[in-house]
Amino acid sequence: MTKSGDTLQQLIDQAKQQQMFLEMFVRSWVDDYRSGGGTVFCGKGCSNCCRLAVHTGFAEALAVARVLDEERGRAVETYAAKLRDLVRGVAELPQYLRLHRDEMGGCPLLNGEGACSVYPVRPLTCRSLISTRDSAWCGADFSKVAPQEREAFLAGLDRKVVSFPSHYVAVLQDSGKELEEAGAQQMGSLLDFSLYGNLGVLVQLCRAHDLAGAALQGRGEAERVIAEAGFDHPLLVTVS
C-alpha cells in the first residue's frame, strides 16, 4: 500500500481498537477485584499519576495531537520545550523520571479542573495504570519517605495483584505493554520503523513539525525532523 494518509489512519484505527480492548479488560478486572473485597482508588480528579512521565507510541500521540484545541496545544508546546531543556546532560532513566515528577508539574493535557482533556483518546499507558492504594502514593518520592512509613506501605500491598514494589496492578500494565508492542510492530510493517517516546514531545512534534508527514517519507526524514526540533534524546524519543 502507498505510504499516505491511509497508512496513518490504519495506525490510528489499530490504536483505537487496542484502547477499547484494554478499557474493557480494565473494567472487567476492576469489577472482579472489587467484588472480591479489593479496593481501587482511581477516579475523576485523582491526578497525582499525571505528574509521571507518560510514554507512548507514535499512533496514540498522533491521535491526541489531532484532537487538541489551541489552549492545550500551547500547554504542550511549553511542556515539551521545558522538558527538552531539563533532560540535557541526563543519561539515566531513574534521574529522568525523578526530574519529571519533581520539576514538570502536571500533564499539559489536564484542563483547568484537573481532568484529562483528551480522556477518550488517552494512551494505553494511562489506561493501564490502576492504583490499589490512595492516590497520594502515586506522586510520592520514596527516597523522601521515612523508612517506617515505607515499610508499612510495602507490607500493605496486595502482592497477588500488584507489580511489586509498586501499588499498580501488574496484569493490566503487562497487557498495556503487550498492546504497545503490537502497535510498534504494525508501524514497523507499514513504515519499516517505529517511534516511541514522551507523549508531550511526540504530540508537539506532530503538531508543530509535521512528524506524521516526515514518517511517511521514511525513517531518515523522521529522524531529521526530531533532531532539528531538538528532541533527539534517547529518553525523549526512540526510533527503531
Rank of each mutant, 00 (worst) to 15 (best):
V161E: 13
A80Q: 05
R72A: 11
D102W: 14
G106K: 03
V121P: 08
D192A: 14
N111Q: 12
D158E: 13
A184N: 10
R127S: 13
D134I: 01
L109C: 10
Q148I: 03
L195K: 00
P94K: 11
F193R: 06
K160G: 15
R98T: 14
R159H: 14
A136M: 11
D85V: 09
V162S: 02
A59Y: 09
H100K: 13
V76W: 03
E181P: 00
A91C: 00
A170W: 00
V145C: 05
A65Y: 04
D158H: 10
M104F: 05
V162C: 03
R133V: 05
L179E: 04
Q186M: 12
G106V: 06
K144H: 12
A155Y: 01
S128D: 05
A182M: 13
P120Y: 08
P165C: 02
E92R: 15
V162W: 03
D158Y: 10
L190S: 07
V171K: 09
S135Q: 10
G139F: 10
V87I: 14
S117H: 07
L190M: 10
L109R: 07
A152F: 01
L68R: 01
C107E: 05
R84H: 09
I130V: 15
D69T: 06
Q186E: 12
F142M: 13
P123G: 13
C107R: 03
V118G: 08
D174G: 10
T125N: 13
Q186Y: 00
P165W: 05
C116Q: 09
H167F: 05
D134F: 07
T132P: 01
L97D: 11
D141C: 12
G106T: 04
E151R: 14
Q173A: 02
R88T: 08
E149L: 07
A59F: 10
A155H: 05
G106Q: 01
L86K: 10
S175I: 05
V145Q: 04
Q173Y: 01
D69M: 06
Y79S: 12
Y96Q: 05
G89T: 02
V145N: 03
M104H: 09
E92V: 05
S135W: 09
L191K: 06
Q185W: 02
L179Q: 04
V87H: 03
V118A: 08
W137E: 03
C116H: 05
Q95I: 08
K82C: 07
V67W: 01
F164C: 00
V90F: 00
F193E: 08
E151L: 12
D141A: 13
K177M: 08
R150D: 03
V76Y: 02
